[in-house]
Structures are given as structure tokens and as C-alpha cells.
Amino acid sequence: MRNPRASWRALLVQAVLVLALATLAYLAAANAAQKLARQGIVAGFGFLDRAAGFDIGQSLIPYAAATATYRDAFLVGLLNTLLVSGLAIVLSTVLGFAIGIARRSGNLLARAFAAAYVEGFRNLPLLLQLLVWYVAVRVALPPSSDPAQWGAGAYLSQRGLFLPRPEFSGFAALVPLAVVAGIGATGLLIRASRRAVALGQKPVPVLWPGALLVLGLPALTAAALALAGDPVPVAWPARGPYDIEGGLALRPEFAALLIGLSTYSAAFIAEIVRSGLDSVASGQREAAAALSLSRGQVLRLVVLPQAMRVIVPPLTSQYLNTTKNSSLAVLIGYPDLVHVFMGTVLNQTNQAVEVVALTMAVYLTLSLATALVMNRYNARAAGTRR
């Protein structure tokens, strides 16, 4: 039987410990504020509303050096970090699953290539790989004085790739909503296919219907808007006196960072997938083959769903590492959060405590959000398998 006095004693000890930690934190903050005041530095986040006065090479939102504030610079760096991290997670997942499945392929050449890929990319430092990709990308591109041109709206040079930029404002916002609807409908098809297999029925086709939903719905929406007299506005790039102006600019720094993060993370994901596939008993494959399922259907509908219970936990850690590794962008000049905020903003404002605290809070929030989503998926998938 639990002793009530011991329980109260334990609660008292914990309360004293929390109070002591809070006191230490307060004293440290007060001491830091006093030292900053002596140096003429005003503590607080009021500096975010001051004029930034510097330009940023790549921005997903309107940003002008003459009118932008440090808050705008923070948002630009944050969005750039989210862009490259999100795309790297998607690309590395696709490539990693393909390499991991190839490592258990019946084709000797596919197995050898997958093993060489994993051992090569996994055992080289990411910092070195980013430098190699950055140099390779820039050397392979045409010079800025003579960019390559395709049609009337696509340019490629050492300054980057410039493409037409659609503006999804007003009724044009229906187009990205159609993409989301197509992805949701494809998810329903996948669930229906798995349910049919669980009931011993013929699986529902997913690949081509899903592709039509994801690509066809946005195309039909854009066509309907054009017929209604409200087409999606497009900003076209054009040759300027010094550089290509307008449109959507994809800088070499972005391409090098995205390729480096994707290929490096894919090597680790491939090993995670391989271990997950090995965890599924061979009898599951034999039973699926007895139901006249093809090898692709056996993998997609039987093996992978069971392997995911082993794949998801380490895959979550790899996603977190990919997001944190994006901070190495400062080495090649990609304007991510660390480069913009911890670099330029910190040097101009000297608000070290606030800048470091905001940057740490962003990466902590991104990591916790990613872990929450993956853990919920893992719990839901594990629940359906019981």
C-alpha cells in the first residue's frame, strides 16, 4: 500500500527543485540583462521592427531591402529553411525507399548499386558533400553573361534557374487547394486498396488514378478559371541590364543544398527501410503470393505496411536530422534561418540572446512538430495492425 506521507514528501522535493531551477533561471536572466545594459544594448525583441537595410538572395515572400524589417528577414530565413527541409525530406524519402527496396531486390546489379550508394554517401561528411555539389552545380551552368534560354520564360545561368512564377491569389488559390484535394482522394484510394486486400478481395488500383487526381484536378481547375475569364496570373522572367529579373529564381545554393541533403539522408533511410523489410517474416510473402498478388502488390500491400512499424521510429529521427542539417547552408551561402538571422541580423543588432533564443525555438518547434506527426502516424498504423 502506498504511503501518503512518502507521496507528499516526494511532491515537496519536486516543488523545491522546480523553485530552485526557476530562481537560477531568473538570476541568470537578470544578470545577463544588467551586463547588456552596461554595454548599451537594450534587451527585448523590439529590434525586430527596426529597418534591416540588407538584401536577401532568395525570398518566398515580398522583400525589399529599403523597407524590410528584421522581422521580415526572420520570416524569409524561416521560409527558406522550411522549403529546403521539406523538399529534402520528401526527396530523400522517395530515394531512400527505392534504394532500400533495391537492396533486397533479386537483381544482382540493383543490389550492388544500392549497396555502393549507401556505403558511399553514408560514410562521407555532409559538409564535404555540400561543397562538392555546390562546385559541381556552378561549374556545370552557363556563365551569367550568356545564360541558356528555353522559350520565352526560362533562363539558366550560374546565377540560378529562372522560371515563370504563378501567383495563387484570389480565385487562383483554388489551384493549390485542388492539389490538396487530389492528395486526400489518393489517400482514400490507398486505404480502400488495403481494406480490400485485408478482406481477401482484389486491390483497388491506386497508381494511375492517384496520378490523375493529383495532377488532373489542378489542371482542370486552372482551365476552368481561364474559361471563366480569371486565369492564374504568371510573372515571367526577362533579361535585365545586369541579370534576369522577375519570375521564380532557384539559386545554385538552393540546388546544391537540396541535392546534398537529399542524397545524404537517403543513404540512411535506405538502411532503415532495409532493416524494416528484413523484419517481415517470409511466410507473409508466401501467403500473399498464394492470393495471386504480383510482386509489386505484395510489397506495397503486405510487406511495407508491416515493415512500417520498424521503419517509422528511426525514420522520425532521420527527418529531425535532415531539418537540423539544413543549418549547414551557411557554408555555401544559402539564405536559411541560421545564415540570415544568426549571421547578418546578429552582426547588425548585437542582440545575441534574443537572436539565439529565437533560432533555437524555431528548430525546437520544428523538431517537436515533426516528431508529433510521425508518432501519431506510428501509433495509428500500429493500432490498425493489431
Score class of each variant (00 low, 15 high):
103 R>A: 08
105 S>R: 01
105 S>G: 06
105 S>D: 07
105 S>W: 00
106 G>S: 03
106 G>A: 02
107 N>K: 00
107 N>W: 00
108 L>E: 10
108 L>P: 01
109 L>H: 07
109 L>R: 01
110 A>V: 00
110 A>T: 01
111 R>S: 01
112 A>I: 00
112 A>D: 11
112 A>N: 13
113 F>Q: 07
114 A>F: 01
114 A>Q: 04
115 A>E: 14
115 A>V: 04
117 Y>E: 03
118 V>T: 04
121 F>Y: 13
121 F>V: 03
124 L>S: 13
125 P>T: 02
126 L>Y: 06
128 L>C: 09
128 L>E: 01
128 L>T: 08
128 L>R: 05
129 Q>P: 05
129 Q>G: 09
130 L>A: 14
132 V>H: 10
132 V>G: 12
132 V>A: 15
133 W>E: 11
133 W>N: 13
136 A>D: 12
136 A>K: 09
136 A>N: 08
136 A>W: 11
136 A>P: 03
137 V>N: 06
139 V>W: 15
140 A>D: 13
143 P>L: 06
144 S>W: 08
145 S>E: 15
145 S>P: 00
148 A>L: 12
149 Q>L: 02
149 Q>W: 03
149 Q>M: 09
149 Q>E: 13
150 W>Q: 10
151 G>L: 03
151 G>R: 02
152 A>D: 15
155 Y>H: 04
155 Y>W: 07
155 Y>G: 04
156 L>Y: 02
156 L>K: 13
157 S>H: 06
158 Q>K: 11
160 G>V: 01
161 L>F: 01
161 L>Y: 02
163 L>P: 05
163 L>S: 11
164 P>T: 06
164 P>K: 03
164 P>W: 04
166 P>C: 02
167 E>H: 10
168 F>E: 05
170 G>P: 02
171 F>S: 11
173 A>K: 09
174 L>Q: 05
175 V>R: 05
176 P>F: 14
176 P>W: 15
178 A>G: 04
179 V>K: 10
179 V>T: 14
181 A>G: 02
181 A>V: 10
182 G>R: 07
184 G>Y: 15
184 G>W: 15
185 A>K: 04
185 A>D: 12
186 T>C: 07
186 T>E: 12
186 T>I: 08
188 L>M: 15
189 L>W: 12
189 L>E: 05
190 I>A: 15
190 I>D: 09
190 I>K: 11
191 R>T: 05
191 R>C: 03
192 A>L: 10
192 A>C: 04
195 R>S: 14
195 R>E: 14
195 R>L: 09
196 A>F: 06
197 V>E: 01
198 A>R: 13
198 A>N: 09
199 L>N: 10
200 G>H: 06
201 Q>N: 08
201 Q>E: 14
202 K>G: 05
202 K>C: 01
